[in-house]
Design a protein around this nucleic acid. Sequence first.
DNA 1: ATGCCACTGTTTCAGTGA
Length: 259
Amino acid sequence: MQIATWNVNSIRARVDRVTAWLERTGTDVLAMQETKCKDEQFPREAFEALGYEVAVHGLNQWNGVAIASKVGIADVETSFTGQPGWGEAAVVEGRALGATCGGVRVWSLYVPNGRTLADPHYTYKLAWLEALRANAVEWAQQDLPTALVGDWNIAPLDGDVWDMEVFAGATHVSRPERDAFQAIQDAGFREVTREFTPDAYTYWDYTQLRFPKNKGMRIDFQLGSSSYAERVTGAAIDRNERKGKGASDHVPVIVDLAD
DNA sequence: ATGCCACTGTTTCAGTGA
């Protein structure tokens, strides 16, 4: 079984490219982030025509997560326990979607950006990750293989950005963010893609020729519970999906699981 | 070994992204 995660940066703008990729690769489960649409705007039919079932969770033009699966979708949850909200009204945003697909619990996650270290959004980001960690402790103790996949908006290692000097004092590389990422692994999850794809980026900014110059970031990951991680036989980052007209700024991160 | 920012809705600019 093949499970992928992809920040698509608007599914309505990208649906042809995403479904073409699914058709070509035969990926069983695709977790998407930044779908940027309400549930009723999601182009479900394009996925269903290829034999996928779709679960979606989007409140407005920001954020939004979805899962497409051709091995079933059950027990859908649109937030995790204690997930913090954003803004004065503390709205729980469309940033987490859980579903059981082919015997695997998949969470499609879009971790808050943080904006700057002084921004309330950064505090929100850390609180969001801490609430996720508390859930991860529980999920790790269950038998169901569980994968926390998505856009983590954290570059865990210095080599995960093209130039640490550019990121001095910026989000994505701060100690508290990296500690939060490690804490989820300490809760019983393991990042399963890096060992198969060292020295690879998953994101390149649209500006300043960042992709041709390969000035990217590695911020999309798959963290697996022990019963997920032990089934992983390989992983890949499809860099080709950043090429050409109409590309997302992120590329798919794919894991192969033993049956 | 790819190509000089891209989505969204309130739309002709602002908010967001990282």
